[in-house]
Nucleic acid binder design. Sequence first.
DNA 1: ACTCTGCGTAGAGGA
Length: 995
Amino acid sequence: MDHDEHHNPEDKCKKPCKVPDHVILSGGINNRYWVLDVEERPCQKTLTISCYKSLHPTETCLLKDGWEMTPVFRGDVVHLEGQSDGGSWLVDNQQGFLVLLPDTLISGTSVSSSIRCMRRAVLGDMFKSFDGGSKHMLNGTMVHEVFQRAATANDFSLEMLSKLADQCIQSRTHGTVLSTEADNMSFHECSPGNSRSLSRDQDSSAVITVTELADIEENVWSPRFGLKGKIDVTAQVQIQRPRNGSHRSPEQKTLPLELKTGRESNSIEHRSQVILYTLMSMERYNPEAGLLLYLKTGNLHPVVASHMDRRELLKLRNTLVHYIHNCVAKEAEQSCLSRLPDILTNRQTCQYCPQRTNCALYERAVESNSVGVSEDVVHDFLQQETGHLTPMHLSYFSKWLLLCCLEATTMEAKNGRRHVWLQTAAESEKNGSCMGNLQLIGPVNVQSEGVFLHRFQRGSSAPQQGLMNSGLASRDRIVISDQEGRLVGLATGYLCEVSRDSISCTLDRDLSKFSGLLFRLDADEGVVGLSTHFTNLSRLMENCQDSDRLRELVVDLRVPEFIDSLSSVLPREAKDTVAVILKGLNKPQRQAMKRVLLSKDYTLIVGMPGTGKTTTICTLVRILHACGFSVLLTSYTHSAVDNILLKLKRFRVGFLRLGQGQKVHPDILPYTEESIRKKGVHTLSQLQQLYNKELVVGTTCMGIKHPIFTRRRFDFCIIDEASQISQPICLGPLFYAKRFVLVGDHQQLPPIVQNKEARSRGMDESLFKRLELHSEAVVQLNVQYRMNRQIMSLSNSLMYEGRLECGSDRTASALLTLPFLHSVQSELKASLSPSNPVCFLDCSMVPAQESVEQGGVSNRTEADLIHKLLLLLIKAGCKPSDVGVIAPYRLQLKSISALLQASAFDGVEVNTVDRYQGRDKSLIILSFVRSTAEEGKLGELLKDWRRLNVAVTRAKHKLLMLGSAATLRRYAPVEKLLNHLQKENMISFKNILHL
DNA sequence: ACTCTGCGTAGAGGA
């Protein structure tokens, strides 16, 4: 197993030896060591390690007998199994394991698939294709399900099996049945007799009898071995070991049992899978073996793992995790994609590999320059898989792949699940991400298939502390483990209700058999991953019509085409309706509608702030609907999709909303698949009808994994907030439509990119922005109905060069109403006056000092001033719900909110600039926070023109700004704003100390 | 140098 010839060990040598904040180290059983140094000698490797963040004291670990091939480098985290002798560990043939990056859990199937081809396993982790799988796979899934259900019911009669098979087909969520012929399935494979009295043992004389079924589909996370998986059946067995003729009493054991419904291969892959399951369930019941059951023959193979088997599989896991974790490497200050394990030259193995296109793509796009002469077989293979792609296509692919890998690395570091097993419940509770010492109370209520309602209360041993201020809120995603950390990740689900002394949640598994145990419940950020990004990129490179066309438009930037006359697209019977709808629009909006109807490829609608984007999209959908066109309506967020659907609903335009009910607006719930299915969808044709009935389908860009897209295509795809969506995600829905419309405004906030290098190398460029160079496809909505004249002027001078216009005199001159302003006595009366719609209160002289903590930036004095201003404004008759308080920094919002606890302030909405995008309020108070003028200490957030543009365009009638003008001039965008304000006499230098 | 939304998973089997 020499997978590591290509790694350049110098990659990491330059890393400074400082442990990053997010890394958790520990000693003891669940140890986590930081690797300070790696010393290589022939046939051995010595690691200098420490389990303290101070990196002192250190220990050593000697790797030999093949372990020295482990791709472990400086700055890696490792877990060691075995013994240490006064701080020196030995891992060799006989003893010990080294688990590299143990907190990245690798699935059992990934490890076992790496036996054949490491490259395939690495690619498989990146590109999880969603083609729905093959007929054989579906068959296998269903047979598994039937067997598991029959085993649970302990009834393998033919009647039962056929009843269960029916149930199984009925309950298949998401109608996977659509893509296969359900009746072709063969259930005779798990006939009685074959499946229960499992009592043969071929290797030894011990007899194993399965006595009981402890669990099915048990979810196992093993941070000890860095593995995860789902165990088909957890079986209670009796082992009878005859020894020296004397009868010993049978032993009770719990073993993992792996079901296989296909051909009985007894292959290394299958057996390895079982060994991996025994490894990962070590903490749970210390199994000495596992079982492999082939349903086709009924044969049961016990799989006893030797130290060697375990050792070799863990080495494979280590190599795999190394490649996954190091997908990018730093080369001369710039990151680049790493080489993958070599391509196999065995055509036989590669022929049916699901990753073969990605395999070839990666080679051509990323690695091609670094290989010498590749063999003919490989060359032919590359040609066959990627011959249709130009160098431009390949470079688009590799560029975005790199950006996504960079971003994935950052996200992984930040949002891993490691705190669930490396931090005690008490420690995690301090961060507000956990509730510990929970006891299951009352019965578990089955809400629907796979949804179990649980209720917990604080255990008696817990300090009498309420659950209310835990930091967890209802609807949060959660993961349940036992308090001790032996059963990590027992179930996942959603928090329902949190009361003072109990909580309820829906889980994907019934935990009633664990009652008596103490649980902990952790917030689950989930393994976010960027698999949709990767899959979309891979898809863009496919050799098929849809992808070819999209590549032409997106990568080659082919000029979008338009037809000349509307008459050919508008059906005669729709003409009147469309005319009526158009009447309600302003000029640029009408222009936009026409452009879309005339487009053959795409249209970009630039919706400046307040120009009625939602209304425009709603109208567009109505028109397309009236013409009989089908529309796929999407955006990145659920709320953006629902905003449009809520409007559409009023015009009685029918639609289907895809997506999890949890995330959908309550008024849109009746339109979801979930709700409609509850009314009864039993047959294939009913399901087809459900999916095909409506012309309009709404979903998020991430929702494209839905099976509806295996069949359905749309005339148009509309993507709202497109300027905030990264290119690989925005591509997703476009595969399913003939033409598309992107709506957004690149002068507002771009897609969120966490990794700095990825951002600086262009990951925050949306598709909207990329395509904008084709001005013939762009229509601008520049007539706005939100801001009055003075507020609008800010944005016009900052960004739009005077192009933004007021839709009416009423809009232009609308003012805040403060009926009781006369009763307010204050130096600042003039600043508060509605007749001064824009006022910047300069706090330079107060002074208002910023404070930078690790959590963020805040400014206590500005917060105090806002509190005082609000008191005056509310006294003057301003409705709290008409006020929004905005700051760029979260920590500042926290300090403001803390001052607004009194009920008088109920309804005042305090939020970040970013969160306010797309929304408005009559009165906005904006806190700039920053007050330190040192050049090196300037923050990123205020350097962004787009963020400032969003900040100053949220107010309809009055905008009050607080900040230290002198400092803020250091930020180019704010300087431009201040210059304008100064010219317009909108800055107040009044000594606001008197407030 | 502080901005944060999307995602249900791990495995179903065939040459």
